[in-house]
Simulated assay, not measured.
Amino acid sequence: MQTIIENNYKKETKITAAVPSRTKGATLIHEVDTLQLVYDLYTYTGDKVVATTPLHSINFLFLHGSGMNRAVWEYYVAYILEIMKQKNVHWKINKIITMDQVTHGDSAELNRHKLGTNFDWADGARDACKVAQEEFLPTSDTNCYNVVVGHSMGGFQSLACNVLCPDLFNLSILIEPVVYVPHVQNKDNVTIIPPRFYNALWSKMTDNFKNMEEFETFMKNDSFYKKSNSEILQRMIQFEAIHTMEGTIKTKISQEQNMLCYLTLDPTARWLIGSLPYIKIPVHGIVGGISTWCPPQNQELLVSRIPLYEKDVIPDGDHLVNLEDPGTCLNRIVERITEFIDSSKVGESESKKGFVSDAQREKLFKVNFSKFKEERVKDGPIILAKL
Rank of each mutant, 00 (worst) to 15 (best):
I4T: 14
N7Y: 05
E12V: 12
A17V: 00
A18D: 03
T23N: 02
I29H: 12
I29L: 12
T34C: 06
L35D: 06
L35Q: 14
Q36L: 14
V38P: 01
V38A: 03
Y39R: 02
Y44D: 08
K48H: 13
T52E: 15
L55S: 09
L55E: 13
H56F: 10
I58N: 06
N59W: 01
F60M: 04
F62N: 01
F62D: 01
L63H: 05
H64R: 07
G67K: 00
G67A: 04
E74N: 10
Y75C: 02
A78C: 08
Q86C: 02
K87M: 08
V89I: 02
W91N: 03
N94V: 04
Q101F: 15
Q101C: 12
H104P: 08
E109H: 04
D123F: 09
G124T: 11
A125E: 01
A125L: 02
C129L: 05
C129W: 04
E134N: 11
F136N: 00
L137V: 14
P138Q: 01
T139G: 01
S140R: 05
T142D: 10
T142F: 13
V147I: 14
V149T: 09
G150K: 14
H151M: 08
M153Q: 08
Q157L: 03
L159K: 04
C161V: 11
V163G: 07
P166C: 07
D167M: 13
D167F: 12
F169A: 04
N170M: 05
P177E: 05
H183V: 14
H183F: 11
V184Y: 00
D188N: 10
V190W: 03
T191N: 08
P194S: 12
P195C: 02
R196M: 09
N199H: 09
L201H: 02
D207M: 08
K210D: 12
E216S: 09
E216P: 10
M219S: 09
M219Y: 09
K220P: 08
D222P: 06
E240V: 13
T244G: 01
E246Q: 09
T251P: 03
C261A: 09
L263T: 12
L265N: 06
T268M: 09
A269F: 05
A269S: 13
G274Y: 01
P277W: 15
P277V: 00
Y278S: 07
Y278D: 08
I279G: 05
I279Y: 01
I286H: 00
I286N: 01
S291G: 12
W293Q: 08
C294D: 05
P295D: 08
P296K: 13
P296I: 03
L301C: 06
L302V: 03
V303I: 14
I306C: 06
L308C: 14
Y309T: 04
D312F: 10
D312Q: 11
G317A: 03
H319W: 10
L320Q: 11
V321K: 02
D325M: 13
N331C: 03
V334N: 01
V334R: 05
V334A: 01
E335A: 13
E335T: 15
I337T: 06
F340G: 11
D342F: 07
K353C: 07
G354Q: 04
L364M: 09
F372P: 00
R376G: 04
D379Q: 12
D379P: 14
L387R: 11
